[in-house]
Simulated scan of single mutants.
Amino acid sequence: MIHHFSIAAKNPQHVAGVIAELWRGRAMPFPPVAVGSWVAFAGDERNTLIEVYPFGCELQPAEGDADATAVVNPQASRFTASHAAVASPLEEAEIFAIAAREGWEAKYRKRGGLFGVVELWLENSVMIEVLTAEMQQEYLAARPPGAPA
């Protein structure tokens, strides 16, 4: 299971707020690693969250007995291979309404003909796949034979 992951955004506060809205959760500042970072909390029993760092932040290992550090890369691309599928209590129409309000691209896709997702492009740069309750059931039913339960 994944408890948290991080992404980068031009406006971390706003993006964290929208992600929290998808979960009916909350967002708050999260500066321990990078100044200007925010975090979206799902408010679930696993304390699921997404950290949103300023655009261009790269986590790099620190020397010796120290935490990783955040360094800004001025040459960063606006796209990344990093993405996540996130469960949402919202209906599909609510997800599309949020995307429209934000001016962010969103579309329904059926992955491999097995389960549906809403591709929501945060700031039109970072994709998250948002799954409604029905899509979550499709996703769970799509477990390949022999895969761990």
Rank of each mutant, 00 (worst) to 15 (best):
I95T: 02
N47C: 02
H3W: 09
V117D: 09
A34K: 09
N73M: 04
S88L: 03
A106S: 10
E102L: 06
P145G: 04
A142S: 15
R78D: 14
S88P: 04
N73Q: 03
A66N: 15
V71N: 03
L122T: 06
K110M: 15
A8K: 12
A106V: 06
A81P: 09
F5K: 06
R109K: 14
E119R: 11
K10W: 12
E21N: 08
S37R: 10
V15I: 15
A147S: 07
G25A: 05
A141K: 12
A147C: 02
L90A: 02
P61D: 00
D65W: 11
C57S: 15
P32E: 08
L49W: 04
R46K: 14
V130L: 10
A68Q: 07
A87F: 12
V35A: 14
K107Y: 13
D67I: 11
R46W: 04
A81Q: 08
L22V: 02
L120V: 08
Y108Q: 14
G103A: 02
R46T: 12
W38C: 05
A100M: 04
V18G: 00
E105A: 09
L22C: 05
D44S: 03
A149D: 04
M1E: 11
A34W: 06
P74E: 00
Q136C: 04
W104I: 01
W23Y: 11
T69Q: 14
L131W: 01
A100Y: 01
V126S: 11
E21S: 15
L90G: 01
P89S: 00
V39G: 02
F30Q: 13
V18F: 06
G56P: 10
E45L: 11
S88Q: 05
A85V: 01
A76Y: 02
E91W: 07
R24Q: 14
A68G: 03
V39T: 13
R24W: 04
Q13F: 01
L59R: 09
G25D: 11
S82L: 14
A87T: 13
A20Y: 07
I95S: 11
